[in-house]
């Protein structure tokens, strides 16, 4: 009931402030420089193997993996941007007290929250997913081709990975909605997103690999699940020998479950509260 108008309003909310394109622009530049720069660096290393030092031969992944690794920066590094967009979409309603006009126009609060969830899922994939993956594939494929390495653009597996990566970005935006509902304080939400994605989770994932039991748990961390869904990642190669990684569809389900669970809990803890 009234779900489609509610989704329409949520899309309009996203695209009528500057936040979405500021975040998308940073995502594009950041991932473009990172993927292009590293692809050029690896290309140079392959051309000059004597420069890569003592263990040089083992440091460079095989060619096909290299392309996938560079491209996947879009999600494995860029996922913080859709999370931020999703979290801000919820917390700004609290911060600017727009919950009042929102709930006056549609007093069915659950409908509003799930409409936001759906709208952010779509924008996370269609806008941030596509922009992020375009930003990584363009410069990285160019740099690899210049170094006579295979950009693997004719490999269907590459494009399957792109599709899974875009799905991951969509899911991350939905996770952001759940997080924003759980932590309606905007500053706190931003700090949590940055600290968790850039610091806490990478350390947890590294520490988890030290022991078989924790490794079993560690693969359910959201970042690990996301990497499993995409199927190639800097972390999964860095965490050599752990071998503990979910199937791609399992990773997607874990991420979706996190998004739904946080949104549900947030609905009961903050979204249903009195708006004063």
């Amino acid at each position: 009931m009234r779900f489609l108008p509610a989704i329409g309003a949520e899309f309009a909310k996203i695209f009528t402030t500057r936040m979405w394109w500021v975040l998308a622009l940073i995502l594009f530049v950041y991932i473009g420089l990172l993927a292009g720069g590293l692809a050029a660096f690896f290309g140079w290393l392959v051309a000059n193997p004597e420069e890569s030092g003592a263990g040089g031969a083992t440091a460079i992944p095989p060619e096909a993996d290299l392309a996938g690794l560079m491209y996947s920066f879009a999600t494995s590094v860029g996922y913080v941007f859709p999370v931020l967009l999703g979290a801000l979409a919820v917390t700004s309603e609290f911060r600017h007290q727009t919950l009042t006009p929102t709930f006056l126009a549609n007093p069915h609060r659950a409908v509003v929250l799930w409409a936001k969830f759906a709208a952010l899922f779509v924008v996370g994939g269609v806008v941030f997913g596509v922009i992020g993956w375009a930003a990584s594939i363009g410069p990285a494929a160019g740099a690899l081709a210049l170094s006579d390495l295979d950009p693997a653009l004719d490999d269907p597996e590459t494009w399957a990975m792109v599709g899974r990566g875009i799905l991951a970005m969509a899911l991350w935006a939905a996770v952001g909605v759940g997080l924003g509902a759980l932590v309606p304080n905007q500053v706190a939400a931003i700090v949590i997103v940055i600290a968790f994605t850039q610091f806490v989770e990478p350390i947890l994932r590294l520490v988890a690999t030290l022991n078989d039991v924790t490794a079993e748990i560690g693969k359910y961390l959201p970042g690990a699940a996301s990497d499993a869904l995409v199927g190639a990642s800097f972390y999964s190669i860095a965490a050599m020998g752990s071998g503990e990684i979910l199937e791609w569809w399992q990773g997607g389900l874990v991420l979706a479950a996190i998004a739904v669970a946080t949104t549900l809990i947030g609905y009961f803890t903050s979204w249903r509260r009195d708006v004063t």
């Binding site: 509610a6 309003a9 309009a12 009528t16 936040m19 600017h96 727009t98 006009p101 549609n106």
Partner: peptide
């Protein structure tokens, strides 16, 4: 609800980065 009751509450709540027209368009859509 919007066609039955029109309400304006104190602490007029608008996102500062959104235009007047867009505020109304969002309410109208919702």
């Amino acid at each position: 609800p919007l066609e039955t009751v029109g309400a304006a509450l104190e602490a007029a709540s608008f996102h500062p980065g959104r235009t007047a027209r867009n505020h109304l368009a969002i309410s109208a859509a919702a």
